[in-house]
């Protein structure tokens, strides 16, 4: 017979993992419901989602295209791939934080694994990213940019991005429950970081001192790992992949341990 003993429990980091597996159907249904809510209301839902980075690309291409023409071939592709990776990470983490802060009331009313919302947010982000990559393919064909076998590396890049985003989302969601202004602070940080990350410009335009600082910006290698196979048409360097994957895994493990160790307090605090 099923038993629950609050005094006998595996360590939270392990317990939460197995609970999530038990509740996997809930995660799928939540992702489904997020997607349905977004797309059901307007048939143009997908279009709107794609329109945003597309408009950004057009505006920025017009503004900076000529400036970087010599240093970046196919500027539009460079920009668009950078934006997709950037938007995936930032939007997913923000969405996770918000759904924890505003939708997390459910955690106070019934038992579900505490990370359910966060995993669902990343799942939702992944679906959107895959749809965007499909649209990107169409645009790239339209722009006559070369498409090579390097594209087959993309699933690995996407998994790395997703692992990193999940880790960061776990960290931020924990913080946002304890400090309600985390959402605002993160928003500001992201805006600043956008300009400190080579998304719309090549790293080469930075003065050498700043260029060294880029090594401290974790977003740089994550974006590179996604951008190189599409824009530069070759596989990313092995060392770059190892660095990006390690960064992602370390972030996930740290975020997971932090989140699960605080998870019991969430129902008290939300």
């Amino acid at each position: 017979m099923l038993e629950y003993d609050s005094a006998k429990r595996p360590p939270p980091a392990i317990d939460e993992f197995f609970q999530l597996i038990r509740y996997r159907d809930l995660i799928f249904l939540m992702v489904e419901s997020i997607l349905k809510n977004r797309y059901k209301r307007s048939v143009l839902g997908v279009f709107w989602m794609l329109l945003n980075p597309l408009l950004q690309t057009i505006v920025l291409s017009v503004a900076f295209g000529t400036m970087f023409k010599s240093s970046i071939p196919s500027y539009a592709v460079y920009l668009l791939t950078g934006l997709l990776a950037w938007n995936f990470i930032t939007q997913t983490t923000q969405y996770a934080m918000n759904s924890m802060a505003y939708g997390g009331g459910l955690l106070k009313r019934v038992y579900i694994p505490r990370a359910t919302y966060i995993i669902a947010a990343v799942g939702n982000g992944l679906v959107n990213l895959v749809v965007s990559v499909g649209a990107l393919l169409v645009i790239i064909i339209f722009l006559h940019h070369e498409i090579t076998w390097a594209w087959l590396f993309l699933p690995v890049s996407i998994v790395i991005l997703a692992i990193f985003s999940l880790g960061l989302a776990l960290f931020l969601s924990t913080a946002s429950v304890f400090f309600t202004d985390t959402v605002d602070i993160y928003q500001v940080l992201i805006q600043a970081l956008f300009f400190l990350t080579p998304i719309m410009y090549p790293p080469s335009i930075l003065p050498p001192e700043l260029n060294q600082l880029l090594a401290l910006n974790p977003f740089v290698i994550l974006i590179e790992v996604f951008r190189i196979p599409i824009h530069a048409n070759h596989l990313p360097d092995f060392s770059l992949v190892v660095n990006a994957a390690s960064l992602a895994l370390i972030t996930l493990v740290a975020g997971w341990v932090l989140f699960t160790s605080k998870a019991d307090q969430l129902a008290y605090r939300l």
Partner: peptide, 21 residues
């Protein structure tokens, strides 16, 4: 119902619980 964990002490249940909270 496991929604919150006790700060101190022990809760023990035997069987599947249906919470109508």
């Amino acid at each position: 119902s496991r929604v919150i964990r006790p700060t101190y002490g022990r809760v023990f249940l035997r069987g599947r619980i249906a919470p109508l909270l």
